[in-house]
């Protein structure tokens, strides 16, 4: 048995991983989420805002991390729409602009068609330069952004009147998949102007532990990986989800993506734990055998 497991072809492990993710997806299993303090902090930061307040949404991710960050992006946009905030989208990642366009179509155009481009939301699009872009938008956005992503002159956009830089924003959200992302926004924007810029973020699992030293002084709220997305989704939908006459949730679909993804997450995590345990059992059994010999 030990010999068999020791020499197990790794493709069997791949197959186990595939099944542990595929089966819960096919069965569409879902679990109840209990929001953590950090997710509640993110939710509260948005809740504090008033109708018409300005919010910057920086989408610094691409399809490579959409599995984790897509649900956050969708829920953030929904939350902003429900709060009737003025949304300014921008991206430091070349593909980030496509993520913005996708979410505008998915949430704003589909469910909030009354919102008007240029008055309620606008897309500044992508600019090259990583932290160099952050430095410019801190002082004078117009040096880089002469038009929005659609090619309209920036001064012709009503909601850009009186906005010279991102210090005019009441809150900033960053959805981050790596460099440049939340770390750079904290370093270059928040740390420089702690009284004027408040940032909350959603990030990938890889980045999350690295950002904890900034919490809460430099980063009051953080959605960490898909679990953070699921928790935030619950908070937003519990408050804003459409309900039937009996008070039951009458919505499904795109605003449940994070929670749906927690099903495969659970099974795959248990598999990971089992793999480590079995791997160690083999190791110790072997070691004992060697000692005996």
């Amino acid at each position: 048995m030990i010999e068999f497991l020791k020499n197990l072809d790794r493709r069997w492990i791949f197959l186990l991983m595939l099944l542990s993710v595929a089966i819960p997806i096919l069965l569409q299993t879902q679990f109840e989420e209990t929001p953590s303090k950090l997710s509640i902090a993110v939710f509260d930061q948005l809740e504090k805002l008033e109708e018409g307040d300005k919010i910057l949404l920086a989408f610094d991710f691409d399809p490579g991390s959409e599995g984790e960050l897509g649900p956050m992006a969708t829920t953030f946009v929904r939350h902003c729409c429900e709060k009737k905030l003025k949304m300014y989208f921008m991206a430091l990642w070349p593909v980030g602009e496509q993520m913005i366009v996708d979410n505008i179509a998915r949430v704003i155009k589909a469910d909030f068609p009354e919102l008007v481009y240029g008055t309620d939301y606008m897309n500044l699009g992508f600019k090259a330069g990583n932290e160099g872009v952050i430095k410019v938008v801190l002082t004078d956005m117009r040096q880089l952004y002469t038009t929005d992503a659609e090619g309209t002159a920036i001064d012709e956009i009503p909601m850009m009147q009186g906005v010279d830089n991102i210090k005019a924003m009441d809150l900033m959200i960053n959805i981050s998949a790596g460099y440049p992302g939340t770390k750079e926004w904290v370093q270059y924007a928040v740390t420089r102007y702690p009284d004027k810029i408040t940032l909350v973020a959603g990030c990938t699992g890889v980045q999350a532990p690295l950002l904890y030293p900034y919490i809460p002084q430099q980063l009051p709220g953080l959605l960490a990986a898909i679990k953070g997305a699921a928790e935030y989704e619950k908070l937003v939908m519990d408050k804003y989800g459409k309900r039937d006459a009996d008070g039951n949730m009458d919505e499904e679909g795109k605003y449940f993506e994070g929670r749906r993804r927690m099903g495969p997450q659970l099974v795959a995590h248990v598999l990971m734990v089992l793999l480590i345990v079995v791997g160690n059992l083999i190791f110790f059994a072997e070691r004992r055998r060697e000692k005996r010999q």
Binding site: L8, R10, I13, F14, L16, M17, L18, V21, G64, S65, G67, A268, L271, M272, L275, I276, V278, G279, N280, F283
Partner: peptide, 19 residues
């Protein structure tokens, strides 16, 4: 391409993580 890492991390957990 990014999702492939899920498989390799599982394989690494089985083979390399020893207490």
């Amino acid at each position: 391409i990014f999702s492939m890492l899920a498989f390799y991390v599982a394989s690494a957990a089985f083979r390399a993580f020893r207490a």
